Simulated scan of single mutants.
Amino acid sequence: MTETEALSRALIEEAARKSGLIWLQGPAGPSRALWHVWHEGAVCLVGGGAGEQPLDGLGLEDGGTATVTVRSKDKGGRLVTFTARVSELPAGGEAWGAAVAELKGKRLNAVDAEGIEERWARECVVLRLEPRGDGVEPLPDGSLAAVPVASPATTRKAMPAALPRLLRKRRR
């Protein structure tokens, strides 16, 4: 391993350890924000089941590649982007158990904290994203702003201009 590769690997590891959120782009579909943990030299994440982060539409497959962008925890900006090899950890295996133990500690607001491992084994997929040896990608010059993914979620309409005056009259 060259010095440049070692520095790239150290940058990826430090950024991924400190950030709780990555942007993942598979061969298909737009980038998606996902929570993760850094475990034994790779980003590990769980998803795909009911109540977990969605992985559908990304085109991730065992042995494929994905582009991972790690954001800054305090400012939210892009720190590093790298290409990773995707591997699906088989449920119940030794590597799966170690990754799930780390993921379970970072999973917030789990409905069934006691039976989460069994549910993940039954319904979800645990992925390991190991950085490839080609280092980090250079930071882009442009904005890279993208159109948001279609969603049934809506926002409130603008507040009527007269509403503040009406509320003041009621208080009197």
Rank of each mutant, 00 (worst) to 15 (best):
A10M: 09
P152L: 10
A99N: 07
G48Q: 01
A146I: 02
R32P: 01
A15H: 07
G51Y: 03
R132V: 15
G63W: 07
R170D: 09
A99M: 06
P30K: 10
R17Y: 12
E118S: 14
E114Q: 13
E114I: 11
G97H: 12
E88K: 11
L166M: 12
R165V: 14
P30V: 13
F82N: 01
V100A: 12
V70F: 06
G47D: 03
V43F: 07
A50G: 15
R9Q: 10
S87G: 12
V46I: 09
V70I: 15
G97K: 15
G97N: 15
E88Y: 09
R119S: 05
P30N: 12
I116D: 06
E40L: 13
S31K: 06
N109W: 14
A42H: 05
N109I: 03
R156M: 08
T2A: 13
C44P: 00
L24P: 01
R156C: 08
A84G: 10
L7V: 12
R156H: 05
R119Q: 09
A10V: 07
G49T: 04
P131L: 10
P27K: 08
R122P: 00
W120S: 04
G115M: 06
E52T: 15
D112N: 15
R85D: 06
L89V: 03
E94H: 13
L163H: 00
V136M: 05
L21E: 06
L55D: 01
T67K: 05
E114A: 15
G135C: 00
P54C: 09
V68L: 09
A91L: 08
R122N: 11
G57L: 10
V136P: 01
R156K: 04
H39E: 15
A99R: 04
G76K: 10
T83F: 00
E40D: 15
G77P: 00
E3K: 14
L60T: 04
R9S: 11
A146T: 03
A161E: 14
K106T: 11
A42V: 04
G29Y: 01
L89E: 04
A146G: 00
E40M: 06
E13T: 14
